[in-house]
Design a binder for these strands. Structure first.
Length: 224
DNA sequence: TGATGATCATAA
DNA sequence: TTATGATCATCA
């Protein structure tokens, strides 16, 4: 068993690949891929996600687009507990703090990313050694009309605050399903934003994240 | 104990 | 610096 060398040519092939690794542990997948699993994730936070990317044939690299652009599909791993409940929020994408003119919910990066997602749940309990954590059965998700409306409402509220130069007042408490939190290598990293007078200021980079209450719903629908 | 704010690694 | 892959760690 070894990772594919080519991206999947269609949705069925992608789903088949994800089901072929279901039930296997991260240690097994690392071994078959010829890489060494780290002891823990303290200094390797994105490691499971990148390992799964390899196994599904996603092209590595950091592009502000979906993982499978030809298929219009975004790949997300999500750590879960024994009840299939999410253990962490889900990073969606970078939050631009200098507004792009003319961007609406329909054309936003958030909506583009979430339009169609292949969720790959992984055992994430910190008591389980990293190599022993198993991959669960992946599934496709598309926002329902209600979910889309909810995400749109949050996105528009948060985006308006950014537009009004209120980036500094945004806290992770805002947003019912989608919220904004810092996203950087450290607190020293700074990027441009605008203050209420339209003057440029430096602030910590932010990202959009899905709350666990939102992803919990998706997982419950899938696994009961 | 869960959520918020902080942080780690890497690529281009 | 802007992004990607996210989880860690602290505190209410």
């Amino acid at each position: 068993m070894q990772p594919p060398t080519l991206p999947p040519s269609n949705e069925d092939e992608l789903l088949r690949r994800s089901h072929q690794i279901a039930g296997l542990s991260l240690g097994e997948l690392a071994h078959f891929a010829g890489v060494v699993a780290p002891e823990n994730l303290k200094r390797h936070k994105g490691w499971p996600g990148m390992l799964i990317e390899r196994w599904l044939g996603a092209t590595a690299g950091s592009k502000p687009q979906q993982d499978f652009p030809e298929l219009g599909i975004e790949l997300k791993t999500i750590p879960i507990d024994k009840h299939f409940s999410p253990l962490e929020t889900t990073y969606v994408c970078y939050a631009p703090l200098i507004n792009q003119p003319g961007v609406t919910w329909e054309t936003s990066n958030v909506r583009n990313k979430l339009q169609r997602v292949l969720w790959v749940p992984l055992e994430g309990d910190r008591q389980i050694p990293l190599s022993n954590r198993r991959v669960a059965t992946a599934f496709f998700w598309h926002p329902s009309a209600e979910e889309d409306a909810l995400l749109q409402k949050d996105w528009e509220e948060l985006t308006e605050l950014i537009t009004l130069g209120q980036s500094e007042t945004i806290t992770a408490r805002l947003g019912e399903a989608l919220h904004i939190r810092p996203k950087a290598a450290s607190g020293q990293v700074l990027t441009d934003a605008l203050d209420p007078d339209g003057k440029k200021i430096k602030t910590r980079p932010r990202g959009f994240y899905l709350r666990t209450s939102f992803t919990h719903g998706l997982l419950q629908r899938q696994f009961g």
